[in-house]
Amino acid sequence: METTAATRAGTDILPGKVGVWWFLASEVMLFGGLIGSFIVSRLGSSGWSGEAAHLSVPVAAINTLVLLTSSMTMVMAFGAVEKGDPRGLRTYLFLTVLLGLTFLGIKAYEYSSEVAAGFTPVTGLFWSFYYTMTGLHALHVLAGIITNLALFVMARRGLRNQHRVELAGLYWHFVDIVWIFLFPLLYLT
């Protein structure tokens, strides 16, 4: 019966990683609840395709490309940490922040042209969902940019806890995945 381990039970898992994944699990529920509500509302109403046709697919596609690329630079920043390449780390983090800002800039351009065309959150239920979902996502992008910027500043001073790059990356990729679903949900159907 005596099965006493010599060390702590479960030290081979990084606590930060477990914590971030739990946090992401709750985020899945947050966006999942919103997306689920959107899906059933859309299936239960008519005429939303016509509303969606007012959105610009090319602009959104470019924005998708920007976010996908930022995911790659983020994971390459982590790769640079693993290879012990502080210069690469700084470069890739900087690129990720830049691409994140580009995404927000394009999103802002989209919002302004839609509002100029008379489509505001109160135009109809489709637009309410559109602005709420993309707005919540944009806030998450903003939080990611701030995190990555903080990491970039830390990396310039010499990053002590290098796991942070991986953890921030997990969050950033999650935000990317949310957009991967928002893009077809709002623009392509």
Partner: peptide
């Protein structure tokens, strides 16, 4: 952790209804 997400989503919608004038939960607006 696993149940609060949809309510936060709902709370965002409710706040939008109250402040931005959307009608997620108002029958007259669909």
């Amino acid at each position: 952790l696993l149940s609060v997400g949809p309510l936060i989503a709902g709370a965002v919608m409710l706040l939008m209804d109250r402040i931005a004038g959307t009608s997620f939960f108002l029958p007259e607006g669909g």
